[in-house]
Each structure stands twice: as structure tokens, then as C-alpha cells.
Nucleic acid binder design. Structure first.
Length: 215
DNA sequence: GACCAGGTCCTTG
DNA sequence: CAAGGACATGGT
């Protein structure tokens, strides 16, 4: 019984990935450099990407779109630029903490590329304000590491597709059915979010029926 | 006006 | 451990 339900979960996860890949093809998400990805990962917490883009533009205009700039900047200047993403004081503190880790602990963004994924993930998770999703986004989109991102949409789609595992087990589930490849993880997560945005809200999820993900 | 957004942390029961 | 709240702005 345990074996067969986990086999079903795996089959459903694989089906989601396959159907959405056919539907969307190649998606280009987070085309920015590593610094920009890290900043965007924090700013997008509980926030639409359209608002994040505005903040990133402001940060760029003001020469604040890098870890060293964030590290050295006056917090008020950061707050002013990221205001449109909401939680702006909290996010400014989180950006400062992240920059502190990058500069002081790692010695810079370039140096982070030499840190093995497990150690880097552990380090990121140790930063106040960086949780699993933000850490995995940074790893996958910023450093091209095969660390699958689970967000609210992924959990929602998985739930309405009939996958029965709890949220903490979704990451290993998807990683077990996909080739261990950062670009595959990148594409799959992007597909899920794009699809969920169109069909799934907190109240109701129509999407799985449309693509017959739950059959 | 109500409700939600590509979360995370803290406090309570 | 689960549930609820705080953080805050902007769009539907």
C-alpha cells in the first residue's frame, strides 16, 4: 500500500512535468546575473514578479543591484527602491543579511561558485529571512545547481493533481522523477508556476482538470 | 472594500 | 506540531 501510493505520486509528478513541458516549451525565467537573481529571490517573497521587476529597475538605476552595493548601501536607500514589493523594511533587512553572508562569509559572489551545493544550501538557510524556497531559487536560478524549488503554486498543483505527500516531501519527490539537471528543474518549476497562475487560485483550482493532471 | 501575491519568522495553544 | 499573525504595497 505504501509502495503503490508512492509510485502513484511519482507517476503524477512526472506527468505534470511532461504535460507542462509539452504545453509551454522553453521558458526564459530570471535572465539576470547571479546578483540580480539573489535580490529578486528575496523580493519575490509573497509578491508578484511584476512588482519585483520595478524594484529591480530602480535598484539598477541607482547602482544598488549587486551584493556589494547592498552591503555598502544605506538601508533607507534600499527601502526606498524596494517599497513597491511590499514588506519593504523586512525585505531590506533580509537583503542586508544575505549580502553580509555573501561578502563576509563567502568572500564574494564569484567565490560562492566554488562552494559545493549542500554546504551552500546550508549556508543560505542559515541566513535570517532565507527559507527553503528562496534558497533553492538562488541555487537553481543563480548558481545553476540542481535544487528543485517548491513554492505555493507547486504545492497547490500537486495537491489538486492528487499527489498525497506533504509539502516537505515534494522537493525529493520531484527530484526523484526528473533528471538531476539544473536546467530541467528550472524549466519544470517555471512551467508549473506559469500554469498555476492561469488556473489555480487559493479558493479553486481548475487547472488540473484542464490538463487532466488528476486522471 | 475584500482578497490575494513565486515566504519567512515568531508567538500561542 | 498546528494555527494564527505580522510584515506592506499593488493589482483585480
Amino acid at each position: 500500500m505504501l509502495v503503490s501510493s508512492s509510485a502513484k505520486n511519482a507517476a503524477k509528478a512526472k506527468k505534470i512535468a511532461t504535460l507542462l513541458k509539452d504545453r509551454f516549451g522553453e521558458i526564459h525565467w530570471w535572465p539576470g546575473d547571479t546578483d540580480e537573481v539573489m535580490i529578486g529571490a528575496v523580493l519575490t517573497q509573497q509578491t508578484r514578479w511584476e512588482n519585483v521587476k520595478q524594484a529591480l529597475s530602480l535598484l539598477k538605476e541607482r547602482g544598488l543591484c549587486s551584493m556589494t552595493a547592498i552591503y555598502n548601501a544605506d538601508s533607507h536607500d534600499i527601502e526606498d527602491a524596494v517599497r513597491c514589493t511590499g514588506f519593504f523594511r523586512v525585505k531590506t533587512k533580509r537583503l542586508k543579511s544575505l549580502a553580509g553572508f555573501v561578502i563576509e562569509t563567502c568572500g564574494g559572489v564569484k567565490e560562492m561558485a566554488d562552494i559545493p551545493t549542500p554546504a551552500l544550501r546550508k549556508g543560505l538557510l542559515g541566513i535570517h529571512g532565507i527559507g527553503e524556497e528562496t534558497a533553492d531559487s538562488i541555487l537553481c536560478y543563480g548558481f545553476f545547481r540542481p535544487s528543485f524549488v517548491i513554492d505555493a503554486y507547486t504545492a497547490r498543483i500537486a495537491g489538486c493533481a492528487g499527489i498525497t505527500v506533504k509539502k516537505p516531501d515534494l522537493k525529493p519527490l520531484f527530484e526523484s522523477v526528473l533528471p538531476k539537471d539544473a536546467n530541467v528543474y528550472h524549466q519544470t518549476h517555471a512551467h508549473i508556476v506559469e500554469y498555476a497562475k492561469g488556473w489555480c487560485t487559493k479558493k479553486r483550482c481548475e487547472g488540473c482538470r484542464i490538463l487532466a493532471l488528476n486522471e
